[in-house]
Each structure stands twice: as structure tokens, then as C-alpha cells.
Design a protein around this nucleic acid. Structure first.
Ligand SMILES: Nc1ccn([C@H]2C[C@H](O)[C@@H](COP(=O)(O)OP(=O)(O)OP(=O)(O)O)O2)c(=O)n1
Ligand SMILES: [Mg+2]
Ligand SMILES: [Mg+2]
Length: 1106
DNA sequence: ATCCTCCCCTAC
DNA sequence: TAAGGTAGGGGAGGAT
């Protein structure tokens, strides 16, 4: 009721909720008190009424509030009947007939006066907000957080100033509320400017248009000193070299070269001599400078240089690349959030061997091996950034210390981490230093040392991995360990061992929490801190959570906290009183479920490696022919320092990002690429003719192989077994749309602050449709299928069954002790074509182009460029590679055709056909090698221009390609000419079962449909194991071979994919027909010869059957 | 219904 | 001065 969405839908356009983004103060403002109990209490009433009112009166908030509301309404009705003037304009009813107001906050006139007006003029007045009853919210002024809550919970309702009521009364008629809307909401409505229009304008002028609406323009200005305008682009273009450096920084080195480029980091064993210098002026309290494992930023050479180059005075000059060409680089080097944000990639790189192949589907094992209880250990470093820096300064241990860029007591630099003495004063991470100093005037501020954090994090994880092979990294100082394997062993002992090793190795302390699930383990760590450990047995969970503030639950941030607050829910105990369905209605199915579970300490997630997931063994073809199945999207982005349109640079970045993905190329189902935060190009400074971005991009849809031959050779492509630069592949996925974007944008270069991000879609197994009410009985679940699912999916399903899945698996495990994993044979399927999220979710303002699926043709898309008019600070260029992948874990046994999605190597040929040559050309070497590994080993390995060496795959000896070509010449390719094509009439008169079947299939299938479709129908209708003699004569054999060969010739330039499908169908059919086996033996070598000739490699037809 | 797009939210 | 990045989950609502 309270959050009842039955009312008019709010349109995003008319009431945009994007102010967070555009509001520069964002969450930095002190949080205002928000919607009072009036909002929440009623909501509780409504949400609880359904299921809880049966119990004793006032058993919960709900029944109490419901009763209260009822009485209030009755009272209002009584009052109304005595005070109503009844009159008012035409209707004979009051002018406010049908109007029901809720007064929010302080108003003039007061809410009681407004209530009086309502009484008099036929309206209603609600003491508590209810979306089903309230028609207008009356409000004079709203703090930010209330505005947000209004957006969240009262969509579609007018929020109107009280003068609307007064004026209406004065006018004796109901005035339109529109002129009385609250400015805050109205102005935001007007403020919302479509990005497209922004760029449309930009396109015309090709510069930042001074005529842009103030809001947009204003936002840009509001970015303050860091913002840059189009004028800054000029400098970026000529200095592309720096980008490479930056790339190396992020990618190749195992050390983090943050603001301190040369500081040597000691571990605890090293002697305290030779400390990094400390800038004394930064230390407010100690007389002598403590020994810090860090330097201040101002000691940084780079920073100094940047100051030297500073032009005097103007802050924009100093705080932008205008005055300091290294500004952005230095900015990122000093950014803690950048450090944290990019840490995971570095971790993956370093510890990938530890996660090697280990599917932390630990859940699978756990569920099968252990009873429903797992044991989770959570380890988190104590005040990490501070600890590391002061680890060799014992004199600071008991003093309040925080890490911050600035010690300025009036400054707005943010506290990154505060030690526990400082926390006693109320100092917290994220605070402005001035507030921290206000809390604690003698707070010692120490600088960051990112390199040391990196080293300590490595040590930390080395220790964790040593003790456990199921480690889920949360962040650089925090991880979950699944220690269920300990069985009888003592997890607490392991925890203390690990903590001791961490302390010995790093000189910093860590705390640990142990519990039956991730959620509670994390909460336990919080109790344990600092330098302690805590075990929460499951029977204590309930008690502990009861009074825990909801904000303490991971996943509940300020926004959800506010929403819950408006429901008068502050702690977990209160949250538990709201039924699950109500929470799901108010917060959505997933979030609602999470809230319900969390408040009870329930968490069915399992320890797993985020991302490096692989398709399950049992995963099989998508049911849909050529379907992509369900996709999982992965993306990596990189912000580069300076604008560039140099394709070489972009390609280098793409490679690097691909490397980060650490993904089995065979799992890849498509690639997308997004470049954002673009800037205008200075024509005179564009990259070399050959390397310009727009050419690269344009070629994606142009089959411009010459250009990419250039690119390729310039990069020293030495293993070009398959020279993609020579491949005349059809660019399937891209697309006019893409080109349009490029051109509409004017001449764009990635502006500083752009980032580059590959989005990957890779198989994730099928998702079970969210259908909470109709779950199949748990006993009907195929255990083998279940086991083949990725852990998160199991977790999700487990969730849906409220954890009963675990027991179910346990029971099954006991039944089948051998644990042999048979082939997945089930039946139950859901195949979604889902290529969307891969591309869509790029949290900037960029215009997005989708990699579209074209009748199931998927794999690689050409680059997609999108523009970005981000009103936030531009600090780098952003490029994103979007990739789409697909799979399904299901197969349909009666579906005669495999699609390309599933079996490992299936993808490769598809990629070949669908990849635009230019894109594939850009793949990282490892990726290419992977691709080429799918091909027979004897292809040439040494050609820079891969097409130069052609090797014929001689898997079948009974045909000579030359012969074949001669014959082909004779027939002059005419089997495929005409409509219907020649072969139809030719085969029509044949007695051959197969040929006749083809003809029949031709007529049954869509006109102009692909041969693969015809073939599929024809072959699926064939009986098994027909005798060769019955099936066809020599002549028929020849005819059908010709048909295939000619089809190869016809399509090899444009659609390898189609060829691939046909040949796979053919290959599959060979098990049921000797005739077709003969055909296959003849045409397959021909196919490979042609492939070699055209692409310098073979087409792998592996389908799992051979 | 489901997909697609555009966000919002959260965590470190 | 100060360096408010990055990645993923997920909801709302329009399009289909
Ligand atoms: N708003 C934040 C939160 C965290 N961090 C950085 C500094 C922290 O040291 C590190 C780890 O975050 P934690 O949440 O683990 O916080 P601490 O380790 O500092 O303290 P605790 O002892 O509570 O874990 O991330 C940050 O820069 N800004
Ligand atoms: Mg910590
Ligand atoms: Mg942490």
C-alpha cells in the first residue's frame, strides 16, 4: 500500500532521478534528516497488514499502524461532515473533491491549517503517507535526501507547494498543481537534457556549444578546477607516448607505481634504517618526525614538476592539463580509489595460477561433502592504509592517525583510513580532513604509500592461498576463505595461524571472522576488530543480529537505509517484521530477498572467484539453433591519460584489457568495444593517416583489409597463421548505427578521462527464470545438471529453495557415492538470447550502441564507439571493449543440429566468420594463439602476413583439391544460380533419398533462406543407417559434393559461419548415412583447402562427436 | 512476458 | 588546495 505502485507511473523523462550524478556535492554533504515516521509508519502498517494482522492486536508495527490510520480516517470523516462547506464551484462537492494530501515536513500554512482546508472543501488529509490514498504531496522545501526518497517512493505523485491549496481556495476552484510544483523537482525535470541532443548540437558546431542549456553547460563548469574544455584537447594529441607508459604501469609490472615511483618498500623484517623521508610540516603533533613507510605527495618528483610547470594564479591552469600536461597522470597516481579500483586486475594477474581451474564452486563440494553447514573465514586487515604506513613507527601506534593527502585543518581532502585510536574520536574513512581534525585536533595525518599497499596485499594473499585453495578476494585487504574442508579441524586455530603469519610477514595486523556464511563471517570480523578474531556459531546469529543497525549489513548503503528509515526500520529486528513479499514489492525481487535474508543472518552465496568462471563441462549447446544462449558479460576498462585517435594505441590497450580478462577464448561469444569520454579532435594533430581511429572504426564495416594489413605489420605480427588482415570476412554485427555514431560525433578523439573497456559475454550456464511462485519440486531437479552449474547459480537456486537445495544435494551425494559425473542429460531448459547487458551498462553518459544479434550470428562485433558527455570531471579517456558471449547448459536431445555456442571449439569458426578482420587483427597475441590452437598444427607459424603460407589440411586423402577445382570450373558455379537455384530442379529428378529430401526441404523452408536451414530440415528427416546403395548413386554423390563445394566458393568471402554450419550439419549426418559420409570425405578437404587459401588456416569442425 | 536501456546503489 | 575510480548487482519503465 504505502509503496503501492498502482498509481501513475513516473516517467523517467519527466522526473529524472539523475541528480545524484550531476550534483557535485553528492554524498559529501552531511546527510540531512529525512522523511519522518509519517512516511514509514504507515508503510509498515500496510506492508505488515497482510500477513501479520491475524496475530494479536499490535503484534507488530503493522497492525498497530493500520488501526491507528483507520481511526484517523474516521476522525477526519467525522470532522469533515461537520465542517465541510460543501460548496465550491460547479460540482456541488468541495473543490478538493478527489484530492487527498499528505503534508511533508514544515509548511506554511501548517499542516493542521491545510487539514482544515481539506476538511472544508471536500478533500482528504492523510496523516501518514500512502501511495494508494494520497494524491498530492504538499511540501515547502525538501532537503536532498528527501527529494531522493520522494523519487524512490512516490513516483508519479505531484509534489506541490502549499500555496496551491491556498490559491485554489481563494479562486474557489481546483487550480492546476503544475505551476505549484516544488522547484527542486521541477528544475531537475527541466535540467535533464538528453545526451543525444547535446551531441546533436555538438555535431553541428563541432565545438562545445555555448548555447547549450545552462544545466548542461553549468554542470560542466561545476566540475571545477579539474574540468577541462575542448581547448585542452590540443595538447593531448601530440603526446600519445605517455599513454603507453600508463598502459605499462597498469598492466605489465607487478608493482604498483603510484605516487611514489622510487620508494623502496620494506617489510617487517627489514631494518628501520633508511626510512623514507617524512615531511615534518605535515606532522602536527610529534616533535620528531616518525618513521613512516611512506612519503608525502609533495615530495613526489612528479608533483614537484607539475608545480614547476604551473602557471601562476589561475586554478584551472594548475588543476588541469592546461597548465600541467601530467596532471591526469599524477591525479591517478595519487588516487586511492583508483588504486583500489584497479587492484583487482593486478591481483588476478598475479594470482591467476592460484585460481587456476579451481572452480570455487566450493559450494558444489560443500554441498555434497558436508552437511548444510559450511565454514567461512573472513580476513580483513586492520585500518589497512594506516597500518602499512606506520608499521615501523611504534610511537604512533596508540596515537590517532589517519591517511590523507592533506593535513590542512580546513581542507576538504578525504580521510582514507583511520586507525582505531582515531576512530575513538569519531574519525572515519571518507571524512573531510577538516571534519576529522574537528573531531580530533591532534590527529596525525600520514601520507599514502600505494606501493607498500600493493606489496602487503600480495603478501596477504600469498598467505591466504597457502592455507586455503578457495579464496575469494574482496579487496586488497580483505578476503573470504571457504574452510569447510577443515571438517573436524578448528577454524579458529587456522584463523589465528593466518593472522600471526600476516603480522609476521607484513608488520600489520589483521582480524578474522568465522561463521557459517559470508554475511555472518563478515559481521564477525567487525566485532573482532582490531587485531582479533570472532566466531559466531549459527545459534548465536539471531541474537546478535536483532539489534544490529541495518546499515551495518553489507549491501545496505545510505539509500536503502533511508528507505528503510522511512519505514521506521532501523535495526535488523525491525526489518524482520516485514514479510518477504512486502520487501520484494518495495525493493524488487532480489533486493527484497536480500534484505529479508540478511536481517536473519541468512546468506546463501558461496565463496567463489569473481569472474574467471568457466563454462561447465556439462554445458551444452543452446537449444535454439545458432542461438547464443545465455550470456555473461564481463568488462574491463581503462582510463588513459590523453586523448588519442591513434588506432595503434587503442589496439594496444584493447590487447591489454583482453589480457586482464584472463578468459578462455573459446568461451567468448562476442566482443564489443566502447570508447567514451571522447573529445573533439584537433585536425592538425591527428594521428597518422593509417592509424586514425575513425578509419579503423569505419573499416570495421568496410572490409578494408589493406588498412589493417598496415596495422598488422606495424605491430610485428609474427605468428599470423591466420592472417585476419587478409580475411575478407563479412562484418556481421556492425553496422550503420556504429558508423553513424562516429560521424555524428564530429571528429572525436578520446579525451583525457576516457576509459577503455572490453565487455565480455561468456557462458554462464543458463539462468533459472525468476519465478518464485512456481518452482519445480526439489526432488525433480537433476543433480548432475545442478552440479554442472556455476556456483553463483547454484547459490541462487539454493536461495530460491530457501537453502533446502543443500540438503537435497547432500542426500543425493549419499545415494551416489561414486560421484561419477555423467553427461548432462536433462531436459529442462531455458535459453535466453541475452546480449544486451554486455554493452549497456556503462555507467557513464555515453550513447550506447548495442552489439546486435543478427539471426543468431554473433561472435565478434566491430568496435562500438560511444560518446560521452559526462558532466563529471574528465580525467582520462575511456575505452571499452564489449564482448558478448553465450551459452546454455542445456541441450535438446531431439534437436538435430548443434549450434556454435557450446562445444569448446565451436566458437572458433564462428568467430572467423563474424569477426571483422580488423577486429580480430587487434586481439592480443595470447588470444590469437588460442584461436590458432584450434586449428591443425601444421599450418605455417612464421608469416608476418599470414596468408603467405598456405597449407592444405590432408585429413582425408581421397580427393585432390586440384581435381576438384577443375570440376568446379566445368560446372561454372551454376548450381546456385537461379531462383529456385539450379540444384533444386536437378535434384528433383534424382532417385537419391538425400537429394530428394533436400528438394523437399527447400520448398518447405523460407524463400531465400540459408542453405544451412534447408540442410538441417533435410538431414533431420533422414532415417538412420541407410544403405549406401539405396541412398544414392555415384552421380548423386558427385552432384551433392558439387553443391557443397560451390556453396563454399559462394560463401567463403562473405559468410564462413554459414559454411561452418552446413559442414557441421554434414559432419553430424555422417553417423547416420554412409552416403553422406562419402560426401563429407570429398568436400571436407575441399573446404579446408579453400579456407587455407583464403584465410591461411583450417576451419575446425569439431563437434564433440569425433 | 521479455528485452532493452538507463540509470541507481554498493563496496573498497 | 586535492587527486570523488572501478566493477558489478539490480530495478524501473518503455519497447517489442
Ligand atoms: N572510503 C574508503 C574506504 C576504504 N578505503 C581504503 C583505505 C582502507 O585502509 C582500505 C581498506 O578498507 P577497509 O574497509 O578494510 O578499512 P580499513 O582497513 O582501513 O579499516 P578496518 O580495520 O575497519 O578494516 O581501503 C578508502 O580509501 N576509502
Ligand atoms: Mg580493513
Ligand atoms: Mg576491507
Amino acid at each position: 500500500m504505502s509503496f503501492d505502485s498502482s498509481r501513475s507511473k513516473r516517467s523517467r523523462g519527466s522526473n529524472p532521478s539523475s541528480s545524484d550524478r550531476t550534483n557535485p556535492s553528492k554524498q559529501k554533504k552531511p546527510r540531512n534528516r529525512t522523511l519522518g515516521p509519517a512516511w514509514g509508519a504507515n508503510s509498515i502498517s500496510s506492508v505488515s497488514s497482510k500477513s501479520s494482522s491475524k496475530r494479536s492486536p499490535f503484534a507488530n508495527f503493522g497492525s498497530y499502524m493500520e488501526e491507528k490510520n483507520r481511526k484517523l480516517r474516521e476522525q477526519f470523516d467525522t470532522d469533515a461532515s461537520t465542517s465541510s462547506v460543501g460548496g465550491g464551484s460547479s460540482s456541488g462537492k468541495g473543490i478538493f473533491s478527489g484530492v487527498s494530501i499528505f503534508v511533508d515536513g514544515f509548511t506554511v500554512p501548517s499542516n493542521q491549517e491545510l487539514r482544515g482546508y481539506m476538511l472544508k472543501h471536500g478533500g482528504r488529509f492523510e496523516n501518514y503517507f500512502s501511495k494508494s490514498r494520497v494524491t498530492h504531496i504538499i511540501c515547502s522545501n525538501l532537503p536532498d535526501s528527501k527529494v531522493k526518497n520522494l523519487r524512490a517512493f512516490s513516483r508519479g505523485l505531484p509534489v506541490v507547494k502549499p500555496t496551491w491549496v491556498l490559491d485554489s481556495v481563494a479562486a474557489d476552484r481546483l487550480l492546476s498543481w503544475i505551476p505549484y510544483q516544488l522547484e527542486q523537482l521541477v528544475s531537475e525535470t527541466r535540467a535533464q537534457q538528453k545526451l543525444s541532443s547535446f551531441f546533436a548540437l555538438k555535431n553541428i558546431s563541432s565545438i562545445v556549444n555555448p548555447e547549450l542549456p545552462m544545466n548542461i553547460h553549468g554542470k560542466i563548469e561545476e566540475e571545477g578546477p579539474l574540468s577541462k574544455n575542448d581547448g585542452t584537447v590540443v595538447k593531448f594529441l601530440s603526446e600519445v607516448g605517455n599513454i603507453t607508459k600508463h598502459g605499462d604501469l597498469l598492466g605489465e609490472d607487478s608493482s604498483y607505481q603510484g605516487q611514489e615511483s622510487s620508494t623502496e618498500v620494506r617489510n617487517s623484517e627489514s631494518s628501520p634504517g633508511g626510512e623514507s623521508s617524512v615531511k615534518e610540516s605535515h606532522q602536527s603533533s610529534p616533535n620528531k618526525a616518525p618513521t613512516l613507510d611512506s612519503n608525502f605527495c609533495t615530495d613526489n618528483k612528479n608533483a614537484k614538476e607539475s608545480l614547476d610547470t604551473t602557471c601562476s594564479g589561475d586554478s584551472i591552469m594548475r588543476h588541469s592539463t592546461l597548465g600541467d600536461p601530467n596532471f591526469i597522470e599524477n591525479y591517478f597516481k595519487s588516487s586511492r580509489l583508483h588504486f583500489i579500483g584497479t587492484w583487482r586486475n593486478r591481483y588476478r594477474k598475479r594470482f591467476s595460477s592460484k585460481m587456476n581451474g579451481v572452480k570455487y564452486g566450493s559450494c558444489n563440494d560443500n554441498m555434497l561433502l558436508n552437511s548444510s553447514e559450511s565454514v567461512i573465514l573472513h580476513v580483513d586487515m586492520d585500518c589497512f592504509f594506516v597500518s602499512v604506513v606506520i608499521r615501523n613507527s611504534p610511537e604512533l601506534y596508540d596515537k590517532p592517525v589517519a591517511v590523507c593527502h592533506s593535513d590542512n585543518p580546513k581542507g576538504t581532502a578525504e580521510i582514507s583510513s583511520a586507525n582505531y585510536p582515531a576512530r575513538d574520536y569519531g574519525v572515519r574513512a571518507g571524512m573531510f580532513v577538516r571534519d576529522a581534525k574537528a573531531h580530533c585536533p591532534h590527529l596525525v595525518i600520514v601520507p599514502y604509500n600505494f606501493e607498500a599497499y600493493e606489496v602487503v596485499a600480495d603478501q596477504f594473499y600469498a598467505i591466504l592461498h597457502k592455507h586455503c585453495n578457495k579464496v575469494q578476494a574482496v579487496s586488497c585487504d580483505e578476503a573470504f576463505l571457504d574452510v569447510t574442508f577443515l571438517e573436524g579441524g578448528d577454524p579458529e586455530k587456522l584463523a589465528s595461524t593466518i593472522r600471526q603469519e600476516i603480522a609476521d610477514t607484513t608488520g600489520c595486523t589483521a582480524s578474522a571472522g568465522i561463521a557459517g556464511n559470508l554475511l555472518v563471517a563478515r559481521l564477525a570480523t567487525r566485532i573482532a576488530k582490531p587485531n582479533g578474531q570472532c566466531f559466531i556459531p549459527s545459534e548465536k546469529v539471531d541474537d546478535y543480529l536483532k539489534d544490529l543497525l541495518i546499515k551495518a549489513l553489507p549491501g545496505i548503503g545510505p539509500a536503502i537505509q533511508e528507505k528503510l528509515k522511512s519505514l521506521d526500520v532501523h535495526n535488523c529486528g525491525q526489518l524482520r517484521m516485514i514479510p518477504r513479499e512486502d520487501l520484494q514489492r518495495d525493493f524488487g525481487p532480489k533486493l527484497g530477498n536480500m534484505l529479508w535474508n540478511s536481517s536473519r543472518g541468512i546468506d546463501n552465496r558461496m565463496v567463489s572467484v569473481v569472474q574467471v568462471k568457466k563454462r561447465r563441462k556439462g554445458a551444452d549447446e543452446p537449444m535454439k539453433y545458432m542461438g547464443c544462449g545465455n550470456c555473461e558479460n564481463i568488462s574491463r576498462s581503462m582510463t588513459i591519460l590523453k586523448a588519442t585517435d591513434n588506432a595503434n594505441i587503442l589496439q594496444r590497450i584493447v590487447r591489454q584489457l583482453f589480457g586482464y580478462l584472463n578468459i578462455d577464448v573459446k568461451e567468448v561469444r562476442g566482443i564489443g568495444l566502447q570508447i567514451s569520454k571522447l573529445d573533439d579532435t584537433d585536425m592538425s594533430k591527428q594521428g597518422h593517416e593509417d592509424n586514425k581511429l575513425d578509419l579503423w572504426l569505419a573499416s570495421a564495416s568496410d572490409n578494408s583489409r589493406e588498412q589493417f594489413g598496415t596495422v598488422s605489420s606495424s605491430q610485428g605480427n609474427t605468428n599470423g597463421d591466420v592472417s585476419l588482415s587478409n580475411a575478407r570476412c563479412k562484418s556481421i554485427l556492425v553496422n550503420q548505427e556504429f558508423r553513424d555514431t562516429v560521424h555524428n560525433s564530429g571528429r572525436c578523439v578520446d579525451a583525457p578521462g576516457s576509459s577503455f573497456q572490453p565487455h565480455i559475454n561468456q557462458p554462464s550456464g543458463a539462468r533459472i527464470t525468476e519465478e518464485p511462485t512456481i518452482l519445480p519440486p526439489i526432488c525433480s531437479i537433476d543433480v548432475e545438471v545442478l552440479k554442472s552449474l556455476p556456483p553463483e547459480i547454484i547459490s541462487e537456486i539454493n536461495d530460491m529453495y530457501s537453502g533446502r537445495l543443500t540438503e537435497f544435494l547432500e542426500v543425493n551425494k549419499m545415494k551416489d557415492d561414486k560421484g561419477s559425473v555423467s553427461d548432462c542429460t536433462t531436459s529442462y531448459s531455458e535459453v535466453k538470447s541475452n546480449g544486451s547487458k554486455a554493452i549497456h551498462d556503462l555507467k557513464d553518459y555515453s550513447t550506447r550502441n548495442s552489439v546486435t544479434r543478427n539471426k543468431g550470428k554473433l561472435p565478434f562485433s566491430s568496435p562500438v564507439v560511444s560518446q560521452n558527455g559526462s558532466p563529471t570531471k574528465d580525467k582520462g579517456n575511456s575505452l571499452q571493449v564489449l564482448q558478448t558471449a553465450s551459452t546454455s547448459f542445456l541441450r535438446s536431445s531431439d534437436f538435430p543440429v548443434t549450434s556454435m555456442g557450446m562445444v569448446k571449439s565451436d566458437l572458433m569458426p564462428v568467430s572467423l566468420s563474424q569477426v571483422d578482420a580488423s577486429i580480430l587483427q587487434q586481439l592480443p597475441e595470447e588470444l590469437k594463439v588460442d584461436l590458432l590452437d584450434l586449428l591443425p598444427p601444421h599450418r605455417p607459424k612464421d608469416t608476418a602476413a599470414g596468408s603467405s603460407g598456405i597449407s592444405v589440411h590432408n585429413g582425408s586423402e581421397n580427393i585432390n583439391p586440384e581435381t576438384s577445382v577443375d570440376q568446379l570450373d566445368e560446372l561454372s558455379c551454376n548450381l546456385w544460380m537461379g531462383d529456385p537455384p539450379k540444384w533444386v530442379e536437378k535434384f528433383e529428378v534424382s532417385n537419391c533419398t538425400v537429394l530428394k529430401s533436400l528438394v523437399k526441404s527447400y520448398y518447405q523452408s523460407e524463400r531465400n533462406g540459408p542453405f544451412s536451414t534447408i540442410l538441417q530440415f533435410a538431414l533431420s528427416s533422414l532415417p538412420h543407417f541407410t544403405d549406401l546403395k539405396v541412398e544414392g548413386l555415384e552421380e548423386d554423390l558427385f552432384s551433392l559434393c558439387e553443391l557443397f563445394k560451390q556453396y563454399v566458393q559462394l560463401k567463403i568471402d562473405s559468410d564462413i559461419e554459414e559454411i561452418y554450419i552446413c559442414f557441421r550439419l554434414l559432419k553430424r549426418s555422417t553417423i547416420k548415412s554412409e552416403f553422406l559420409l562419402e560426401v563429407y570425405n570429398v568436400v571436407h578437404p575441399f573446404l579446408q583447402a579453400s579456407m587455407n587459401e583464403n584465410y591461411g588456416g583450417n576451419l575446425q569442425l569439431y563437434d564433440g562427436l569425433s
